[in-house]
Nucleic acid binder design. Sequence first.
DNA 1: TAGGCCATCTGGTCCT
DNA 2: AGGACCAGATGGCCTA
Length: 271
Amino acid sequence: MDSDTSRVSSRPSSPEVDDIFLATLKKSVHGFSGAVSSTQSDSPSDISSLRGLSASDEESLALRLAKKDRKLLSEGELQSIRLKINSRERKRMHDLNVAMDGLREVMPYAHGPSVRKLSKIATLLLARNYILMLSNSLEEMKRLVSEIYGSSGHHGGFHPSACGTMTHAGPVPGHPAASHAPHPAVHHPLLPPAVSTASLSAPGIAAVTSVRPHHGLLKAPAASAGPLGSSFQHWGVGTGMPCPCSMCQVPPPHVSSMSTVTMPRLASDSK
DNA sequence: TAGGCCATCTGGTCCT
DNA sequence: AGGACCAGATGGCCTA
């Protein structure tokens, strides 16, 4: 279940764990005698409570009873209910993790056995910023298209209009950023520009986190006002200098909500 | 060893 | 009534 290839864990995390456990449980119902001290894995200590139960019909019987009647249930019946609930919960969390993995797959960061998986919170935050970035680019592209086809010959070139007004487009032909499109590759929502440009290689931002030195790479620099704040700048591919365009000077207002407040640890964690 | 991240258990609440 | 969802607690694994 856990797709984390960089972390070897013996922790049972698959949804079928309960099935396995139930199988062993039924075997041990009559023979279990150990007092296991564990608060996890379906509380083996509770297995002792099932001793003496017929086991087969216990589950179906218990599940038919109302919650309010659980006080009247035997420990074995309660245990059966608990196992079923635990199983559902595990499955739910498993599905959630699968979805999280799916999100990681489409996120612009490197994937591979040597790449440490993004944490859940990092995945969510990165995804949010990535969406904002793409939305920005889309809006700008729309604006450019309308501008180009609306008033042909107005500018002659592409770039000036993009950098002279407000939101910034993605890979605009002629724009310095076009060579490292899409934009997120340069304007990493979570990472400082210096990091972004340092290790750029194909699919854009993917390289940014390709060699994730633990959590450090997701930390924003102290000077960063936010994901798209002061760090939200174009960085010339060859020069490494910030783009002078207006977009790089003034962060887009509608994405300002994503501040360090929303990601306190990622932004301020200096571990 | 401390801290981060995670899986799991558990009880409560909400929804269908 | 039963399941989904949520949050707190707990303990394991891993890294700096």
